[in-house]
Design a protein around this nucleic acid. Structure first.
Length: 567
RNA sequence: UGCCCCAUGGUGUAAUGGUAGCACACCGGUUUUUGGUACCGUUUGUCAAGGUUCGAGUCCUUGUGGGGCAACCA
């Protein structure tokens, strides 16, 4: 059990839980205590019209997590009632992402399209009760008739058709006798209702579109309000959790349950997740993909689950993040740094430390014997000694990071510079001797002398070095490409500006590709499943797909190490 | 000029009428062969005004501010 698992209420003598719970858990605990339900049953109902993002992860952790915690069931249900926008590709991606997060849909996998026949029957039942009618008005007239939030709507001229006529017309709709958009089925509720959704909402429309699952069997499809809640009911979902924008739909949700006399699922809304410096709507993410701004839905800069996965995030880190974000009803914008913290927190404990130089310059150990190679052990993870150590080759010619050398420095500079002495991680202490400047005016080589008695682990030199540098043996280095990422948008809330399009805030420097990076030889056997730390640089993940395409290793920087240096 | 929801440090989130706490971020310190980690510490908060109460972040009223609602989308 990890320290991140939710603590069960302690068995206190006074019976009080030792941990606070959010409002949805309170409802569940009350329902269980009052025997309103013997067990709970939740669901996650994505529309397969895009990839899942971190906001969905919050919803997934909520509904799946609650089912697990209270030993209930959870369904995965694809809300596929709009064939024009949905596809099997998205269904597959959603299943993959939920599975990757570590969840199983214990209650089963469902599709709203499986209920089309029953939904149709529900509509007939409504008509028979005089609670629905076929409207032949144009879309514009229907919209006009709805009024505005401040002005009541007006009744459709077809509102008082007889039950028989409505039954026949609705049957004709199904038979395909009428063209697309010719008429719709509407619930008969209240055109003057203060809630716009109660002003005779449309519940069925004619749309000749090939559905990825039902093919061409249907030419009428139910609208969200006449599909979602009914599906919840059919699956006997006890707690139907959704985001705030559906709050105004709840009266309708309940009206249909009452009118149809079906299982009373309960809808509860919570605030969706917003992350700063990114966008979280499928429409906007799709636009980034279509415009080629990013590499696809799984671009490592995307807030999608697949993007985060490729970036190197672990399922555990995302679950920790969702846990820390909390559940409430107020609008929120989470700091990106919380996500980064969650990843570091996990990877610090499990990732092996390795050495890589991203902007290499030569480091020559002038007094080290030419042609000799010494194997030096280096601990894989100081946070977890059980992970052992590996042997690193060390010789006269090494690579060091360009940033680790400066010609002019001061007392706060712990790295190499004229007059400075540093430790090479897991190797020796070296002292500056000289440096070589290239034709371009940049430093090309740094020459140092090493102290043979300062060997890591058996240092008897007595020399103190404030700084420790990472390095890679030149002769055995692996050449690789490393991709560094920054936030996709420079503005914290790119879609929060009424007068400007979110794309105006794209960060032009969100991707930096480094070629010719030098990796220690042990990294040859790295796999995408095991993120590593490049010592002093951050956590990195092998991009298996790009590596295969490029013919050389391609690494993605998942997150930098926290940098405490105020130089 | 309608209806619904919301309001606690910079950002999130607790406190269920009784000491405003936790996390992230920030800043400072200790330790350190990663300027990482770990540990310690500082600063910062109940939108406003009334009311109820011995006692209000919590209950009531009125404001103010924010969000949502008028797709044959979900």
């Amino acid at each position: 059990m990890s320290e991140h698992s939710v603590q069960q209420p302690a068995d206190n003598s006074d019976g009080k839980p030792s941990e606070s719970i959010h409002f949805i858990e309170q409802i569940i605990q009350d329902d269980l205590k009052n025997s309103r339900h013997q067990h709970i049953h939740t669901r996650f109902p994505p529309e397969p019209n895009g990839y899942l993002h971190i906001g969905h992860a919050k919803a997934i952790c909520l509904s799946f997590g609650l089912a697990e915690k209270y030993e209930g069931l959870v369904n995965l249900r694809f809300d596929d009632t709009n064939p024009e926008k949905e596809s099997q590709e998205y269904v597959d991606a959603i299943r993959r992402d939920v599975t990757w997060l570590g969840y199983k849909w214990s209650g089963g996998e469902f599709y709203t399209s499986d209920y089309f026949e029953q939904l149709y029957g529900f509509a007939v039942r409504l008509i028979e009760k005089g609670l629905a009618y076929v409207d032949h008005q144009s879309a514009e007239d229907i919209a006009k008739g709805k009024g505005t939030p401040t002005k009541p709507g007006t009744a459709s001229p077809h509102r008082s058709r007889s039950v028989e006529e409505n039954l026949q017309l609705f049957d004709e709709m199904r038979q395909g006798i009428h063209p697309d958009g010719h008429c719709v089925l509407r619930a008969k509720i209240d055109m003057a209702h203060a809630n716009m959704h109660m002003r005779d909402p449309l519940i069925y429309r004619i749309k000749r579109a090939h559905h990825q699952r039902t093919g061409d069997k249907w030419c009428v499809y139910p609208m969200y309000d006449f599909a979602h809640g009914q599906s919840d009911s059919l699956e006997e979902i006890t707690h139907s959790l959704c985001t705030l924008e559906f709050e105004v739909h709840r009266p309708l949700y309940e009206w249909f349950i009452a009118a149809l006399e079906i299982f009373p699922s309960r809808q509860i809304e919570f605030a969706r997740l917003n992350l700063d410096h990114t966008v979280m709507s499928k429409r906007k993410l799709l636009k980034l993909v279509e415009d080629g701004v990013v590499d696809g839905w799984d671009d490592p800069r995307m807030p999608t689950i697949s993007g985060l996965r490729r970036r190197g995030f672990t399922p555990q880190s995302i679950r920790t993040f969702c846990d820390r974000v909390g559940i409430a009803k107020r609008e929120n914008v989470i700091d990106f740094s919380l996500l980064e913290w969650a990843l570091r927190d996990h990877l610090n404990r499990v990732a092996h430390r390795t050495m890589a130089v991203l902007d290499p310059i030569k480091l020559v150990v002038v007094n080290f014997p030419e042609g000799q190679t010494e194997m030096l052990p280096s601990v894989n993870n100081p946070e977890n000694p059980e992970d052992g150590s590996r042997e690193m080759p060390f010789s006269k010619t090494l690579w060091m990071e360009r940033d680790d050398f400066k010609i002019e420095s001061n007392k706060k500079w712990f790295r190499l510079a004229p007059g400075k002495t540093v430790r090479l991680k897991s190797a020796y202490i070296v002292r500056y001797v000289d440096h070589v400047t290239g034709d371009d005016g940049r430093t090309k080589e740094v020459h140092v002398e090493y102290f043979p008695d300062s060997k890591s682990g058996s240092d008897t030199s007595g020399i103190k070095a404030k700084g420790t540098l990472h390095w890679v043996n030149a002769a055995t280095a692996i050449d690789a490409e490393v991709r560094l990422y920054d936030r996709l948008f420079s503005d914290p809330t790119p879609d929060g500006h009424a007068d400007k399009d979110f794309s105006e805030f794209l960060n032009p420097n969100s991707l930096e590709i480094r070629e010719g990076c030098k990796l220690e030889p042990a990294l040859a056997s790295a796999s995408a499943d095991h993120p590593v730390q490049f010592t002093r640089l951050g956590y990195f993940a092998l991009d298996a797909e790009r590596t295969e395409q490029a013919g050389h290793m391609v690494w993605n920087r998942s997150v930098t190490l926290k940098d405490g240096w105020k130089g």
